[in-house]
Nucleic acid binder design. Structure first.
Lengths: 147, 147
DNA sequence: ATTGTTCGTATCACTTTGATACTAACACTT
DNA sequence: AAGTGTTAGTATCAAAGTGATACGAACAAT
């Protein structure tokens, strides 16, 4: 795709997709949230080719969702940690997961529980202002005019 | 990627991504939510090559997010409408958009308002059970054992 | 000295993509 | 009747991206 549409495009979805709009990037972020930090952990978890992984980790680092940290000087070893921007991707992951759970739910699925209450987490998107579920009320779209 | 991981993989995120894990598909769904239904509308809106668009529309239709409807017999013309599954993708779109708004927010952005209250929609993900924002409380992950 | 671990790079066949041109089936205008 | 316009694609093909595999560098451990 044309990934150079960052600041031109008024659509916030396009802008996000130009950063993490492919499946590998999203899976890396998923695994990073699950606590993985190292090249080989990602590689084994996802079965991704090392060339791909190198590129994706570099992009996510450049784009500020991950940061490299040296965890060993001898030999030099880096690990990849989530930044704030990367951590804030979690709601996206949960909504993607919620859709998959509902529409591709056959067989066994990974589950997420609230550690305090012990209840299974049911992620939904709401408008923080009105409290209404996204998609349940009519909305008005305002597209900025060009230039 | 390996797109044949539908029912094998216990991760609901992987399953969703095997259906709509590329930028074009997500942008088509965005435009479909904005009311576009026809081939040329999508093509002009996104600047996508017709070969790509044909394939993506076919995939989304096969996967049950869109459905074809004939709107003219002479000449034969089809349009693409969101199914329930497609409509339920809206929360994903809003969360992706929310991230882009927060971390790639320079310049003019499309805005969404609640038609009743007139307030700008601030999409967040919450756990419907506890009401807590996703990511603010510790959670426990349960991965099903193989076989 | 040999084996193992970790984080990659090199190579290369294969697949996907994207730009462009073109077609089919009409309607509409002159 | 001929030409123009609209819609929904298909055909072609070069360029780019992907992915499997092998290999390398820099050590640690035995």
């Amino acid at each position: 795709m044309d990934t150079e549409n960052s600041c031109e495009n008024p659509c916030p979805i396009s802008r996000s997709l130009s950063v993490a709009g492919d499946a590998w990037s999203i899976l890396i972020l998923r695994d990073a949230h699950a606590g993985l930090t190292r090249f080989d952990q990602f590689r084994k978890s996802m079965g991704i080719a090392p060339t791909m992984l190198t590129r994706r980790l570099a992009t996510l680092t450049e784009e500020g969702l991950l940061e490299k940290r040296r965890y060993s000087e001898h030999p030099p070893r880096e690990e990849y940690l989530l930044t704030d921007a990367g951590r804030d991707f979690l709601p996206v992951l949960f909504m993607i997961g919620a859709w998959g759970r509902k529409y591709r739910g056959g067989g066994k699925l990974t589950q997420f529980f609230d550690a305090e209450t012990g209840t299974e987490i049911q992620a939904i998107a709401v408008d923080e202002v009105t409290g209404a579920k996204i998609g349940t009320r009519p909305m008005r779209v305002v597209v900025p005019d060009e230039r």
